[in-house]
């Protein structure tokens, strides 16, 4: 059974359709990458999966259960989320990591905090450090550990490295790769960088104008010779072929893709 399944999900905000008829599945242990121009609905799609945005009933399923029928607090413990900017709570690193369990009156043992820090490749001495003093990369890894403390089935990642420098980006990627290995965690990873999606994802979804443009295995979708031309155009920083842009110029050797087709 799919860890996550999205069936014909649309999302309207005001009179603007943010997402249009999205369908996809994410298998247990899989990493699904989501790419697309800014404003294409990547974050909105992710936020529907833990109900920070409200999906219509019968459109999002977690291990076969309609998520709108689950208690929302319980859902968010099972579907964790890491945001672009790691917002650290006041207090120490340990205070941050124990926050989720503390909400339901559970005290997390110090050994467990250290084990969680170890999972995100941070030393145990960090536990007592004020969270406000961390570097961006450390804070983002604490944010991941904080989400893991709830023992989620699925982790949603909303451009988790886009505010980080290349070295911190690499450590966060390595952290998440290690977690997949160790915990068999299912990841849905929105990325601003196609290269990153190619590195980390099993399958990649290209989203544009709130619609699924392409969804395939990362290496097939992004193969330089045989890959999806719209995905490749986007990878080259050329979103002219995408619905998102009003103009769409034809390029030599490649037919123009009209807005209507996408």
């Amino acid at each position: 059974m799919a860890a996550l399944e999205v069936r014909h999900l649309s999302l309207v905000r005001g009179d603007y359709e943010v997402l249009h008829d999205i369908s996809l599945t994410v298998e247990p242990g899989e990493t699904l990458g989501i790419i697309g121009p800014s404003g294409s609905g990547k974050s909105s799609l992710l936020r529907c999966l833990n109900r920070l945005e409200e999906p219509a009933p019968g459109t999002v399923f977690l291990y076969g259960e309609d998520i709108t029928t689950l208690p929302v607090v319980a859902l968010r413990r099972r579907v964790g989320m890491v945001f672009q900017q790691p917002a650290m709570f006041p207090g120490t690193v340990a205070d941050n990591i124990t926050y989720g369990p503390s909400l339901r009156g559970e005290a997390l043992a110090p050994e467990r905090v250290k084990a969680l820090l170890d999972m995100v490749l941070l030393g145990p001495e960090l536990a007592g450090r004020p969270a406000a003093e961390l570097s961006g990369g450390q804070a983002q890894r604490v944010a991941i550990a904080r989400a893991l403390a709830n023992e989620p089935d699925v982790l949603l990642l909303d451009e988790p490295t886009s505010s980080l420098d290349p070295i911190a980006t690499r450590t966060v990627e390595e952290t998440l790769a290690a977690l997949r290995e160790r915990l068999g965690l299912t990841l849905v990873w929105v990325s601003h960088a196609v290269e990153q999606a190619r590195r980390v994802a099993d399958r990649v979804l290209l989203l544009d104008g709130g619609r699924v443009v392409a969804l395939d295995r990362a290496e097939r979708l992004l193969d330089p010779q045989t890959g999806d031309e719209r995905a490749l155009a986007f990878a080259q920083g050329d979103s002219n072929g995408l619905h998102h842009e009003a103009t769409n110029r034809a390029r030599p050797g490649r037919p123009a893709v009209s807005a209507e087709e996408t």
């Binding site: 920070l52 319980a74 968010r76 413990r77 945001f83 917002a87 926050y99 709830n150």
Partner: peptide
């Protein structure tokens, strides 16, 4: 908003 949604995403109620 970022701080509040981080708490919500960890299973906090809106009050918490």
């Amino acid at each position: 908003r970022a701080l509040i949604e981080s708490r919500l995403a960890l299973g906090a109620t809106s009050r918490q």
